[in-house]
């Protein structure tokens, strides 16, 4: 019963988060300076009749709230309207690009989880040289913005060494991996640093806990102590930060996709924003928000597995 209620509250929160963000996205896009008419006419001044036609076709004269409700109603059914620039369905334009962005984010997430948590554990469990090296490396990673990382990686691995292709998405599994490796690294670097730092701190903190001392006093071998009492208990904060950084990758991917000319959602979002293609901006923004919310839901499910105290807290509520 409690699990059912837990799921229900989570679902309600999810819907609320989506509603609020959809409103923010819709109004921000509508309030942005510049008229969508200018985009529709490519900057030319149209005769009034034609302007009127466009206004009616794109519902530009409806009151704001009505437009929002209409948009939301259609969006729920998967219809984000028509792109002003290409006159194509926004949903179709999005679904054509979502896969590549999804792959890029997945690749980067794997790098973040494996390398970030790995480095964090290494630094947390070993003192001395290993710890200091990780600290220096993560400080460096965190300080380099994704677009600088992209540039540096391109210079080093594409221009100088020629190990990876420079631009595009690649064909087939191997081609994809080849093409996405440098973008994924650029996208992951800062997050790797954050996850590593938080993991290190969490491991250190758990090591100082009194229950770890109890286990030690019982003569539990160190490996088991680390696995069952330190890392196991540090898993909750590690999950939190991993979830947050991974969820934010969808938005961050824009920069990297631009740098490596990948035709994904992010680069398309930037392009659409530049041409005032409002329907596209709104559509992609919503997709990013949904991805963010879904990742957070997954994190919540992880908590449920990792921390029994949360399970009973649900009972009492």
């Amino acid at each position: 019963m409690s699990m059912f209620r837990w799921a229900l509250t989570r679902l309600a929160r999810l819907v609320a988060a989506l509603l609020i963000s959809s409103f923010v996205i819709f109004s921000a896009a509508s309030l942005a300076p510049g008229s969508p008419l200018a985009a529709l006419s490519n900057g030319r001044t149209l005769p009034p009749e034609q302007q009127e036609q466009l206004r009616v076709r794109f519902h530009l004269d409806d009151p704001f709230l009505l437009r929002y409700v209409k948009w939301l109603w259609n969006a729920v059914q998967g219809d984000f309207g028509v792109s002003i620039a290409s006159r194509d369905d926004v949903s179709r334009l999005i679904s054509g690009r979502i896969w590549i962005t999804g792959q890029l984010v997945l690749y980067a997430s794997i790098l973040i989880l494996v390398i970030g948590i790995g480095l964090g554990l290494l630094a947390g469990l070993r003192r001395g040289a290993a710890d200091s090296s990780v600290l220096v490396a993560t400080a460096l990673f965190a300080a380099v913005p994704a677009f600088v990382a992209a540039t540096l990686l391109t210079i080093l691995f594409v221009t100088e060494l020629g190990w990876f292709p420079a631009l595009g998405e690649g064909k087939g599994f191997v081609g994809r991996i080849e093409h996405l490796t440098l973008p994924a690294i650029s996208l992951a670097m800062a997050s790797i640093a954050i996850v590593a730092r938080v993991t290190r701190a969490a491991v250190r903190e758990e090591f100082g806990r009194e229950h770890v001392q109890t286990a030690e006093s019982r003569g539990i071998p160190r490996r088991q102590l680390v696995r069952r009492h330190v890392v196991r208990n540090a898993a909750v904060p590690i999950t939190t930060v991993s979830g947050l950084t991974v969820a934010s990758l969808f938005a961050l991917s824009a920069i990297v996709e631009r740098a490596f000319s990948i035709n994904g959602l992010g680069s398309y979002l930037v392009r659409a924003a530049g041409t005032k293609d409002i329907a596209v901006v709104q559509g992609i923004s919503m997709v990013i928000v949904v991805a963010f919310v879904v990742v957070n839901l997954l994190v919540d499910v992880c908590y449920l597995v990792l921390d029994p105290r949360i399970r009973t807290a649900g009972d009492r509520r």
Partner: peptide, 21 residues
């Protein structure tokens, strides 16, 4: 570890001395 099997410790605050998860 073998010695620690011979000696058992009971701590003051069981709440913090027993792994909560």
């Amino acid at each position: 570890r073998r010695f620690r099997r011979e000696v058992s410790m009971v701590f003051q605050d069981p709440r913090s001395h027993i792994n909560p998860v």
